[in-house]
Write a protein that binds this DNA or RNA. Structure first.
Length: 807
RNA sequence: GCAGAUGUGGCGGAAUUGGUAGACGCACAGGACUUAAAAUCCUGCGAGGGUUAAACCUCGUGCCGGUUCGAUUCCGGCCAUCUGCACCA
């Protein structure tokens, strides 16, 4: 007898969502739990089967928390600004607002069909002016506190379409749409000073419960390094060139310098440079490459000597040549390096190619370690000792670093410097479908934020979303919107026409959920105090270095200005693995391996879908989709449904199942906390197999079983609770089952016996049986196999194993 | 290239974190039920050898080496795959 999931699931969903069963309560005296999933971008393709993996996982936890008596906030919303909607609009001439609304309606219906316990009364949408009013408000606060500034930054510029492109739209250096070459074009952009928070973003990781791999990736991305800045004089000039190095100890070995092709020194000294044509040509070639291509190590090094100018090594006093090369990035450090080919792999490669001198200044402290620096750079920091380095000779690398920095500081030619790989956040987009940046430019007053009581600055309703000429935003064409008056002096002024990146809205959405309809503040003080921080945030590993870091940055800023009560937004962060197509590749239309969740729900039901996604593999690892395997989960739920045919009376667990029941409660309770959902499901399956084997289950066992299963398969279990057990109260808020530790422990143990670590037999012993007695039993069981062997040693690990070392 | 992860039967995976490798599921095979099929229920299922059947023996967790009474688990070195790299979200 199969259960009618179509009817049953629909019935419960209608009840839940019309009654608001799962809405958070406004009773701030209750203990709270705030669970968060990354709100989706409502794409035209609809929900991906990957979305429900994360949502089901946190839904399971949220449902368990309600049963544990928490006031649960488990909200949902839509991150709806973005490129795809805009590109669709350009192609099909449908306003992004319309497609976005349509897509959200589709997503909402899909999400409801899966029975997630979201609080739909708090739904947010980043494109709603009532929402982005506060995104703009935060930007203005950032500006007022000096954390938003204008800088000239390169954008990808398509030489064919004459428009700015996102990185994603650049494929192998050409425009995705027209195939024309893409170049880097300088443009004045809004930047956010995330680097000001770099140290705190590292330090405060100690106070949060993130997976270690997430912390590691954030730390590496921020990339703190300690070193020195050293200033090199340019011969016959007042100009200087400052470099950043993590190896100031090798300064005596600096035989040339390399600057990024964009470095300002080139312009400043252009009159002295004798091969400007060559330099310009190299710069032009570089502008075709991304930073990513430029930093690839295995590619052949390229470069060009800047002739006519020389730098002076401040320690040796020698003149050294200056080169430009694209492996030096303008965005890191000072955009210039001192090259020590003897002790840096990249410098060595470069020096070898262009025949530059290699001077050894460090040797190994042991003759056993080979180091022919003409052949290969010697980079070992631990075993190195300084040579050919004047006052640094015979020091270890560590001591030499210290001493040379002291020297540099005393002589005002350098200083100790901490550097971060993290760069400031380019916050401007030359696009239509984003939050307008609420700034006005006045010739007299400069940049002026619009008054806060005029927020939101609404995105004008335009029809031509085509990017403007020369990489301008589409908004730039709408002069009636652009031209305005200066809020400061009342004179003529123009609006900023760039919009914000999609990251803006998602950097603070978790705050809005706490009080989504507030029109006086982004959320009330009381709501922020009660709900902060998010207790558990789950999302993809791919968001670790961008979204997660950006939102931590914004949160810390809001903390600094007294808006939020906690230093960190998220107390705990976990991640889910991607779901791949059945061929083990990423799902994509072109590969034809996309699974539509609607079809799966239609064929197997929401509960089967949810159980399968939890069962398919370890939660934080990628897993391929399998239509065959989901059938197994659907079969499992049929077997659960049919347990009712073997149901007997009983208020307590029967002796034959008692241990299994207590163990199951213990295991499922802790596995959910550890996100080991796959082993929860296998526990349920094993239990059902046991009930089938005995062809009986009593009411007490049945009740506990459906309670444990409820967070995973809420519809079928609520139905069984009502129709079979006749309960009036839904499972959703019933108390989570408890177990008795004493009843999970066996008093008898099957003890494995090994010879040299290999299993040779087993023996039954009592729990904590004394060793002499165990030894006797083991030898009774195994002695015949010991014939002809010499016992060297016997090892007994209490209640675990008995190993006999034999010869 | 840099950074983070992963590698166990035909397949997805489990293993109390150093202690019986392969739980649970899929696929497959056999049986029961049925006129029959589907569904359902029951049984078997790492490889090789061995036995009428068992017992039993050997090998086996990407590869090479190490530590240990004992290694999927710890250490060193390789190889392969996946994810991110700042304007996709």
């Amino acid at each position: 007898m199969a259960y009618n999931f179509k009817e049953i699931e629909k019935k419960w969903q209608e009840k839940w969502y019309s009654e608001g069963t799962f809405n958070a309560k406004n009773d701030y005296s209750m203990k709270k739990w705030y669970g968060l999933i990354e709100f989706p971008y409502p794409s035209g393709q609809g929900l991906h089967v990957g979305h429900p993996r994360s949502y089901t996982a946190l839904d399971v936890i949220a449902r368990k928390r309600r049963m544990q008596g928490y006031n649960v906030l488990f909200p949902i919303g839509f991150d709806a600004f973005g490129l795809p909607a805009e590109n669709y609009a350009i192609k099909n001439h449908i306003h992004p607002k319309i497609t976005t609304e349509k897509n959200i309606n589709h997503f909402r219906a899909q999400l409801k069909s899966l029975g997630f316990s979201f609080d739909w009364s708090r739904e947010v949408n980043t494109t709603d002016p009532d929402y982005y009013k506060w995104t703009q408000w935060i930007f203005i606060q950032l500006y007022k506190h000096g954390l938003a500034y204008k800088a000239t930054m390169p954008i990808n510029f398509c030489t064919g379409c004459k428009v700015g492109l996102a990185n994603e739209e650049v494929v192998n250096g050409v425009c995705e749409r027209c195939g024309s070459p893409v170049v880097q074009k300088e443009k004045s952009q809004w930047m956010l000073k995330i680097t000001e928070y770099a140290q705190r973003l590292i330090d405060d990781l100690d106070d949060v419960d993130y997976l270690d791999k997430i912390k590691a990736q954030q730390r590496n991305w921020i990339g703190r390094s300690e070193g020195a800045e050293v200033t090199f004089k340019i011969a016959d000039s007042d100009e200087t060139l400052t470099v950043y190095t993590t190896r100031p100890d090798t300064l005596f070995g600096a035989t040339y310098m390399v600057v990024a092709p964009e470095h300002h020194i080139i312009e400043k000294l252009s009159s002295k440079i004798t091969n400007m044509d060559e330099v310009e040509e190299y710069k032009r070639k570089t502008s075709l490459k991304s930073d990513f291509e430029r930093s690839e190590l295995n590619k052949e090094k390229t470069g060009c000597e800047v002739k006519g100018i020389k730098a002076i090594n401040p320690l040796t006093g020698k003149e050294i040549p200056i080169w430009i090369s694209d492996y030096v990035l303008i965005t890191y450090g000072t955009g210039a390096i001192m090259a020590v080919p003897a002790h840096d792999t990249r410098d060595h490669e470069f020096a070898t190619k262009f025949n530059l001198p290699i001077v050894q200044v460090i040797k190994a402290n042991s003759d056993d370690i080979a180091c022919d620096v003409q052949k290969e750079a010697f980079t070992d920091v631990e075993t190195g000792v300084l040579i050919n380095s004047g006052f640094l000779n015979d020091l270890s690398v560590k001591d030499a670093k210290k001493k040379v920095i002291e020297y540099l500081e005393e002589n005002h030619i350098g200083k100790k410097q901490v550097n971060y790989k993290l760069r400031d956040w380019v916050f401007s987009r030359q696009r239509y479908w984003g939050e307008p940046i609420p700034m006005v430019h006045c010739d007299k007053c400069g940049w002026v934020p619009i008054p806060e009581d005029e927020l939101p600055l609404k995105l004008p309703d335009i029809k031509d979303y085509e990017p403007g000429e020369n990489g301008e935003s589409p908004l730039a064409k709408h002069t009636e919107w652009v031209n305005t008056t200066c809020p400061h002096c009342g004179g003529k002024a123009t609006r900023e026409t760039d919009t914000m990146p999609q990251w803006a809205g998602s950097s603070w959405y978790y705050l809005r959920y706490m009080d989504p309809h507030n029109d006086k503040a982004l959320a009330s003080k009381e709501a922020l105090e009660y709900w902060s921080p998010v207790d558990w945030y789950n999302g993809g590993m791919e968001h670790t270095t961008l979204h997660l870091l950006y939102s931590r940055f914004w949160h810390k800023f809001l903390y600094d200005i007294g808006v939020v009560p906690t230093k960190e937004p998220y107390q705990k962060r976990t991640s889910h693995g991607m779901i791949l197509g059945s061929n083990g590749e990423k799902m994509s239309k072109s590969k034809g391996n996309v699974v539509n969740p609607d079809e799966v729900v239609d064929e197997f039901g929401a509960d089967s879908f949810r159980v399968y996604e939890m069962f398919m593999g370890p939660f934080d690892q990628t897993a391929p989709w399998s239509m065959e395997s989901i059938r197994g989960c659907s079969k499992f739920l049929d077997r659960v449904w049919n347990l009712q045919t073997m149901l007997v009376d009983g208020d307590e667990y029967s002796p034959k199942f008692e241990k299994m029941m207590h163990r199951a409660i213990k295991k499922v309770s802790s596995d959910i906390e550890e996100m080991k959902f796959n082993t929860c499901i296998s526990t349920f399956m094993t239990m059902v197999n046991e009930f089938y084997k005995e062809k009986t289950i009593n009411k007490a066992e049945f009740k506990t079983f459906i309670q444990l299963l409820n967070p995973f398969a809420p519809h079928i279990t609520e139905e069984l609770n009502k129709s079979v057990l006749g309960e009036k109260e839904d499972l959703a808020y019933q108390k989570w089952p408890e177990y008795d530790e004493a009843k999970t422990i066996s008093d008898e143990i099957t003890l494995p016996i090994q010879f040299n670590g290999k299993l040779k037999g087993t023996v039954q012993i009592a729990l904590d049986e004394d060793e002499a007695s165990v030894k006797q039993k083991v030898h009774e069981a195994i002695d015949q196999k010991l014939e002809g062997k010499t016992v060297v040693k016997e090892i007994y690990v209490k209640n675990k194993i008995y190993n006999i070392v034999v010869k």
